[in-house]
Design a binder for these strands. Structure first.
Lengths: 186, 186
DNA sequence: CGGGTACCGGACAACACTGTCCGGTTGTAG
DNA sequence: CTACAACCGGACAGTGTTGTCCGGTACCCG
């Protein structure tokens, strides 16, 4: 008896495993970073290694699925006209590790289609918010979207490297710095 | 004949191996980051694994030695009264991976004496430059040293994650951002 | 009710890195 | 010249991760 096996649902299994894997990956990546062992993702999902690799051939595939969802939620949240740049930053701070992971993955595999378009979506998202802030007069017309993206990237990075307890403080400090930069003459 | 062995110099060997290891580590860490396999450091140094671990019981010990030298050079370079904050930043850009490694190591092992005092030296160094810039009127009196350190940390991080070809560009952009921040009202 | 199919889970082989251990070599001292 | 001691290099065992492979199981269809 090599293994008893406990729950196979046959061909009609559907995408349940996929969902469980993505949910588990979101948690694991958010708490341990993008380099966390995939085996621990499978374990947390209550799924075998085989299923993990069947659904997601490699780490990037899994990460892309996670990012896809994250960005989707970000887009929904920021479609609300009342959301400001500060809200965006707040979301980034919350998801520091995942944000950094996304940026890292994009820069590490700039030619991988699965991930490249996510970068564009992210940029478009930032652009929308920036435009809104400009219209509202809360941001000078001289501010460049790419600078904001860079600022977010730097912030996410430093937050990811901070001790969790310091995150809030470091985030506030960094954001104040950028706030000053974006308010300045140029 | 398990191994021919080629060059043992006996008890009078002296610190040559240590030097070779540090030099190799500087190169390897600078090009592959702090997580590079120690075995490749030994190989590059032309030294056995045994010698590596005899001189440096663990990765931190080796890294600390490397940082020690790096900071020493930084101190020498910046003692020159003519050096500005821009010079400091330029040095950081050049040593992006090592700078990030230092910061990462300090935050990852804040209680390890071998590394903690390096953080203080670094901060003192920045403080000296900042004071000088303030006296020269090139920096507003309101600028906080810790903000500058944070800026350096963020810059080093984003540079480390950039593709080598983009480093110069990203560095310039980031520095412009911080420059604006430090010139701004607060 | 029996066969087929699609999918599942976990064992496992391959691989990479760390840190230890030991036989070997060289310089020195008697 | 011989004995000793310090130090060296690399083999190796231990450990953790990736990605594959295969026997097993549940659902569907005839």
């Amino acid at each position: 008896m090599p293994s008893p096996a406990k729950a196979n649902r046959g061909p009609s299994a559907g995408p349940e495993n996929r969902r469980a894997l993505i949910d588990a990956a979101r948690e694991v990546f958010a708490s341990e970073g993008i380099s966390a062992p995939l085996s621990s993702v499978a374990r947390k999902a209550g799924v075998g290694q085989g299923s993990l690799y069947r659904h997601f051939p490699d780490r990037i595939a899994l990460a892309a699925a996670v990012f896809e969802e994250n960005i989707g939620e970000l887009e929904v949240a920021l479609n609300d006209q009342a959301r400001t740049l500060d809200d965006l930053l707040e979301l980034v701070v919350e998801q520091a590790l995942v944000s950094t992971a996304l940026i890292d993955t994009i820069t590490a595999h700039p030619h991988d289609e699965r991930v490249a378009h996510l970068g564009e979506r992210l940029r478009a998202l930032v652009e929308r918010v920036v435009e809104r802030e400009k219209s509202a007069g809360r941001l000078g017309a001289h501010v460049d979207v790419d600078d904001v993206v860079l600022a977010i990237s730097m912030m996410a990075g430093v937050l990811a490297r901070s001790e969790p307890g310091d995150r809030a403080d470091v985030g506030r400090r960094a954001w104040a710095l950028f706030h000053a930069a974006f308010s300045a003459g140029s």
